[in-house]
């Protein structure tokens, strides 16, 4: 069966934060919880600025799973890492362990006490009955059971964020790479790997980026 994955193309992401907004709107996530966020690297440096959208990456060997003291995580048959909010004790260990900072904790009461953990579900809901009111209230919409892909990926204006079966996603990306750099050596990215010279000049090379001093 499929193994669901996200992929973000750093060449295409324009930091519009549309995915962040779509996610918030689709799932009506509580205040202070950010299931998805866009991070811009080298912000303001000409020619070096790259943006990436990040959420739960649905690891095959998820660290959150192994540290959870009540074992609330599970992987679905589609390879989506989900969790059951009922047993969650809000200890924050999954947040310590996660490389991507995906688990979020709504503040519950005074002194920064953590509530039940909330994270990206790949729009696959939770263990409650699919598309039920309880499921929506706890985990947000279950688009996967409606035959749809995550809202963030589907609405991405530049198609920088791709979501879906890993095979399909990699096919799309392969198509993209093949078309990106033209023909011949450019197809397998000669210039990207070894520098300009032998390869046919690509579209990117014609634009000479200005290198500015750091602000």
């Amino acid at each position: 069966m499929a193994r669901m994955k996200f992929l973000c193309d750093s060449e295409r992401c324009i930091e519009c934060n549309g995915c962040v907004t779509a996610c918030k709107q689709e799932h009506e996530v509580p205040w202070g919880v950010n299931r998805r966020r866009v991070v811009t690297m080298n912000d303001g440096v000409a020619g070096a600025e790259k943006s990436l959208s990040v959420a739960c990456m649905h690891c095959t060997d998820a660290p959150c799973m192994s540290v959870c003291p009540v074992d609330c995580f599970y992987t679905t048959s589609e390879g989506v890492v989900l969790h059951d909010k009922d047993p969650c004790i809000g200890c924050g260990y999954c947040f310590y362990a996660c490389p991507f900072g995906a688990p979020q904790f709504p503040q519950d009461g005074a002194f920064g006490m953590r509530g039940k953990m909330d994270k990206c579900t790949f729009c696959a809901g939770g263990p409650e009955a699919d598309n039920s009111a309880e499921e929506f209230q706890k985990y947000g919409r279950n688009r996967l059971s409606e035959g749809k892909l995550p809202a963030c990926a589907e609405m991405c204006s530049t198609k920088a964020l791709l979501g879906g079966d890993a095979d399909e996603v990699s096919n799309i990306f392969r198509d993209r790479v093949m078309n990106r750099d033209g023909k011949g050596a450019g197809v397998f990215g000669w210039a990207t790997a070894y520098g300009k010279g032998d390869a046919k000049p690509s579209a990117q090379e014609k634009v000479t980026p200005k290198v500015e001093a750091k602000p």
């Binding site: 609330c72 599970y74 047993p87 263990p127 409650e128 059971s145 409606e146």
Partner: peptide, 12 residues
């Protein structure tokens, strides 16, 4: 834990 149904079991 609580069992989750497969996404194709439900309504559509």
């Amino acid at each position: 834990g609580k069992r989750d149904t497969q996404p194709w079991i439900g309504e559509p």
